[in-house]
Design a protein around this nucleic acid. Structure first.
Lengths: 231, 231, 231, 231
DNA sequence: TATGAATGAGTGTTCATTCAT
DNA sequence: TATGAATGAACACTCATTCAT
């Protein structure tokens, strides 16, 4: 999953003259300045998406945030979806790393620690790429490629988790893994969107405990730092 | 929460601010035919929202689905947000009933059964009102009232669940309950949206088990019907 | 009153209230071409307003007259009201100049000449900005700013006239001045709208005579060029 | 000008079957109740027009004000213009009476009194029918008949005034009379619309004086009640 | 005679995308 | 490589008028 993003400028519908059609993602070679501008756009878009969400975000918002122009935007991306695709690639790489780095989740405190670390990393990625992930989830993305990337990345993580669940002797069928993914995604959303009042550490503790017991068949451990306080 | 929806045939003396309007409900009394048409619109909109999502849905889609005209739509609703508000009210009532009907979740099979039944009902409601709930979640709803309703309904359920968690001796702090809500909502979404391949019964079994253990501190019960199969 | 109009390319963070918007002027710096297009729109709108009146004029009429597109219009003006505001500013500046240039109206022929010159200038301005002035008069303009400008401009002229009436020893109370303004505005309207058959010179003569005698306490002068013909 | 208004129901464009076409204003004979309803609509419309103006007024506003229904409106009037025509007829009759009742305007106090009385009556009529008159003035009325009525009524008054001006030895050419009409109409508008602060009596005094001197060649009379105060 | 419901053409406004410089 | 200007299809909403009861 280390394909590099290649700007698909000129992959638009109307394509009349003898051009490099057929070779869809025919990126121009970018020089230093070009790379910098593209980076500016990618970063700006993440900020805008975080605030408004992908669909509500306007190209205008993005270029303003990136302190550049409309024309420039379309110099680097074929359209908004194409930008999403580029972000999706970065995000998928991040998630991929997560999947690769996930060690065994034993029923003891070591397993809990491993799990916590994974969750922490997941939340971190979500903080950055949440809007992209949600765009996948919402399923209103027309772009096949972006969809595929999202699916792929999620499947990778799901597979990794499923394997660890299996090792732990817990049910690791498709549905169980899906439920875990559901919990992960939405908890991260709550955390990041601030729609629900949760703070990072408390959520990490809670999730570690819940997931360990609920999905990895761990016994109830008196976990340190886990406040057993009722609300 | 049994406030009835009153069609906002407002008389925005001058400019109707194009948004949620100030005078939300100055409903004409509807006769039989009027009620029928309104119902048609509400039902059609649910179908359209289910397919396209609230934001992507066009008023035009709705009226086409309801086999009525554009003008008629605005005879019953001030705008799309107002329609959402009406649906939100119905949804909130459904969710409210769920909260009220939730019995104690004991650690034994009876508790599991109770839980399963609740989940079943929740999924059912989600099947119908999912788009409305997601509109709340996405937080891009401008309408204050609809937001309030959504928050209120979710808080009600969360409170009921929290109480049962507390009774069960499990952590029932704010964060734990939030995590449970996250799991419920997104699982239902996966189920309903068909974005992930899960079938109703399997998900019910899985969720019952996971939630029972993860959130209600139940021991691992050899639950009947729970396939221990790995994928 | 030399505030320059600044195109209201506002960034109504969320909903643009469909009306006068809060952030009226966050103008982009316009380049030569931009200025030209804006001018084209302003001029075209004057032509359209002259023909249809402000309220009846459609944005579509304006852009057609300006040989540009719908989108372009909204690139320069937030809406029709905003365009009116821009025109109002120009008009107010014109009227202001009139007020400043008004010399003393003595009871002799010199006074009559001065008056005639003023009336001529007033009619001239009215020929250009009549529709704007009438939009003020009709009082159906929602835009506060445009209203303020109109009121201000009229007050300026009224004040100047009042002072000259006072000097001339004629009644210069509020009501008298108002009556004079009424006469000026409506005569100009008759002249410009061609609703009543009057030609410019005849009207100038008539008005000079009538106003001189009626509002500036002048004696009946045998004014040259004044046809004493009955109709 | 004492033609009675006959509801032109069925003078609409589409007119397929063997109906009383050709006889355009084929009013149904109205019974007592019908007359009452029609009156209700006429009165309500005047109220609404006074508040919003003819063009901005919605049929919906009118029927609400008249506490009746849309359907009923179109039972009595072919459309909004048709309603205007009916009001125009009433108004024209009022104005007609004014024209007929206008006595000679002598240069002395008796003439001033006569003039004052006329102005008072004119303002009175304007208070009631101002919106109708303005609809004529604005010239945006499609209806030929209503236009004709308006023109006719104004011409009648203008003729009567012109005659009296002639008798008084003042210029009574077309343009002079037009200027007087301009002054009358707009003053009345200022008075009624409250766009300018003038009160009835003061305006009457001022107008009497100004018109007497300006249009009827009267000398400066120390008119009683005329405050010579500057503002 | 009266009514509330229904209709759809008309209008304002937005915004992704293309163009000329 | 960068930019601001231009475009027009798409969409929300209004309201005069007609219809069925």
């Amino acid at each position: 999953m280390s394909e590099a993003y290649t700007s698909p400028r000129k992959r638009t519908a109307r394509r009349p003259p003898a051009d490099t059609v057929g070779t869809p993602a025919q990126a121009r070679e970018l020089r230093a300045q070009g790379r910098k501008t593209m980076r500016k756009l990618l970063d700006a878009s993440m900020r805008v998406f975080a605030e408004r969400g992908f669909h509500a975000a306007r190209v205008d918002d993005i270029v303003r945030a990136a302190r550049t122009s409309h024309g420039t935007f379309y110099l680097y991306f074929a359209n908004k979806e194409d930008l999403l695709r580029a972000l999706a690639l970065e995000c998928a790489q991040d998630l991929d790393a997560l999947a690769v780095g996930l060690g065994p989740i034993t029923p003891d405190r070591a397993g809990a620690a491993q799990l916590r670390q994974f969750l922490d990393a997941f939340f971190s990625t979500y903080r950055r790429y949440g809007p992209v992930i949600r765009a996948w989830m919402e399923g209103r993305v027309d772009d096949r490629e972006a969809q595929r990337l999202g699916l792929h990345a999620f499947t990778d993580i799901a597979t990794a988790l499923g394997r660890r669940m299996h090792e732990a002797g817990a049910p690791s069928d498709h549905t169980s893994v899906a439920a875990l993914m559901a919990l992960l995604e939405r908890s991260a959303y709550f955390l990041v969107s601030r729609r629900v009042e949760v703070d990072n550490d408390t959520l990490l503790d809670t999730m570690t405990c819940v997931v360990h017991r609920g999905f990895f068949a761990a016994p109830l451990l008196g976990q340190p730092g886990r406040p057993r306080v009722d609300r």
